[in-house]
Design a protein around this nucleic acid. Structure first.
Lengths: 108, 108
DNA sequence: CTTTCATTTCTATAATTCTAGAAATATAGT
DNA sequence: ACTATATTTCTAGAATTATAGAAATGAAAG
């Protein structure tokens, strides 16, 4: 995971509509949700949602599969775990501090 | 951690310059970095960097403390851990899958 | 082949963001 | 007060994004 990809994915998650949509897909798990189901839950116009979903797909965070007339969307858990791993490794290292460790870290 | 705050913080991390700056601050740990040090490392104009840093501060991801003429910036590890927790809990639940669990989860 | 449903693409507009030079502010030293 | 350094604020233009109505596309059903 390079910084560019991480930034791209963080950027796409960094919009309330998209983050909400993504959370719904995470909750839905394997079953996923049709675009129309997300639309009803978020209560926003179809064209607006389509824009947001396509950005999530573009960033690799969501996959889509046609099922007849509906498009089923699923969270890409692998991508999400990759992003989580990047954040944990690259953006949360430094000092791992419990209260007791604060002085030691600051002093030495 | 509510969705709005998470989205705000994700949005701010979702810019390459800001993500790079934040990573530098994470690496720097307790010591942090002066704005000018970040600027030299990223090699971008001061006004541009100031814009980005102020956004990170606004989102609560970075703190600033004046030390004479320099402004020392530090990553807010607590905020970052909160964000990580939110993502792990709210955006990475669903099916926790090792390879072996895939079929079981899909099957029922 | 027409209708119906689900979703996207087209199009336009308003709003936001990124970038960076110039000017201003804050601090310290002389 | 004057100078130098560090950083921000002002300002403006280019680029991107968000929003949503209207039209188009894909797929099933009659």
């Amino acid at each position: 995971m390079d910084t560019e990809l991480a930034a791209k994915q963080l950027c796409e998650l960094g919009n309330p509509h998209r983050l909400q949509a993504f959370r719904l897909l995470v909750k839905a798990g394997e079953d996923g949700l049709a675009v129309g189901e997300i639309q009803e839950l978020l209560n926003i116009p179809g064209s607006t949602l389509s824009h947001h979903v396509s950005r999530l797909v573009w960033a690799g965070l969501v996959t889509q599969e046609r099922e007849g007339r509906t498009l089923r969307c699923r969270a890409n858990f692998t991508a999400m775990q990759g992003l989580l791993g990047f954040l944990a490794d690259e953006c949360c290292t430094g000092v791992r501090m419990d209260d007791g460790d604060l002085n030691a870290a600051a002093g030495g």
